[in-house]
Design a protein around this nucleic acid. Structure first.
Lengths: 175, 175
DNA sequence: CTCCACTCGTTAGGATACGAACGAAACGAG
DNA sequence: CTCGTTTCGTTCGTATCCTAACGAGTGGAG
């Protein structure tokens, strides 16, 4: 988790390996810092908030979506959480086993499955979300107010850009 | 993956659920955008570069570390990659099966295992890393030059802050 | 030299993750 | 109504991913 090597050291090594291949180190730095930060933040939140409550990261995100938006179709949850349908099936199985969510079939469309929070699920989220947000505050506490907005904006741009070609690919798939 | 709901909508929902509990939405926004961006970027890179080469994300990162730094102890790789030792064992097994890395025991310390890239591994990295970097450039291409530096700096701050308590916990574990 | 605490990598067991293939349900065209 | 297509969630197979427990190797204390 540490990434003990300095950026400058890494840069020197990569330079000598790819001499004359025109590597953009600035871009590399932004992207690698993105993954380092996301990893570190996720580990922090899992350690400080989730593991003590027997919750996985994805399990928590699923609970959060259903908690905020109420009864959801599983395809909506998968979309919002950012996992495949197959993964969500497994995560919901775990959450259902732990009595945190309940599933039922839609009456208007027999293919759909609707998910709701149980009483336990609601109580759990009401209890731990404030803790979770407290740790979010901790994570960004080394950033100035203006820096937070700028960072959030930049991250949003990266997200949209990365997803851009995804939408195009979806359209192209005509068969 | 989409996250179709607006921030304002989400904020309204969360507000009504936690009325009077003092949630910091700015911090929530930064952190959630961090995860969205990292997820989207990772999916983009897996789709555009890795999946065509039968490489998993972690497998690629492991190859990258060994490629840049030369023969490595497995504990160093795990540290640098950010996974547990147990996970690395499995990933190395896959990479070894695909003839991309080779392992050998250290002679000076019989507990250590040293990992090197095979010829195939080196050729693979020499071929795909420029592609990978090209996609990194694509990912940050919507950011101004100054914005890139600011974002990288902010992400570095978050990483260090998130890891801060980890180091303390490590020290406390006396037993 | 003999313990013994410590550090390695691996294993065991369970949960998460994906693409591909599948069966059930919905629904348009004929 | 019937057929073909599409859209669901699930299942299957495989690969990550974690913690905990483990066996082997190390090295200091006595």
């Amino acid at each position: 988790m540490a990434g003990s090597h300095t950026l400058a050291e890494t840069e020197r090594q990569v330079s000598s390996l790819l001499r004359g291949m025109n590597i953009d180190f600035k871009a590399m730095t932004v992207v690698s810092n993105l993954f380092r930060a996301a990893n570190a933040a996720r580990n922090h939140l899992e350690r400080e908030v989730l593991s003590g409550n027997r919750l996985s990261w994805t399990g928590f995100v699923v609970l959060w979506v259903v908690w905020v938006w109420g009864e959801c179709e599983t395809r909506e949850i998968a979309e919002e959480v950012g996992t495949s349908k197959a993964t969500l099936t497994g995560v919901l199985k775990t959450l259902e086993r732990d009595k945190l969510v309940a599933k039922r079939r839609s009456k208007s469309d027999g293919r759909l499955v609707l998910v709701t929070l149980t009483g336990d699920g609601k109580r759990l989220m009401t209890r731990i979300f404030p803790e979770f947000n407290k740790q979010e505050v901790y994570l960004v506490s080394s950033l100035e107010g203006s820096e937070r907005k700028g960072t959030a904006d930049a991250l949003r741009k990266i997200t949209l850009h990365a997803r851009g070609d995804l939408a195009q690919k979806g359209k192209k798939r005509k068969r």
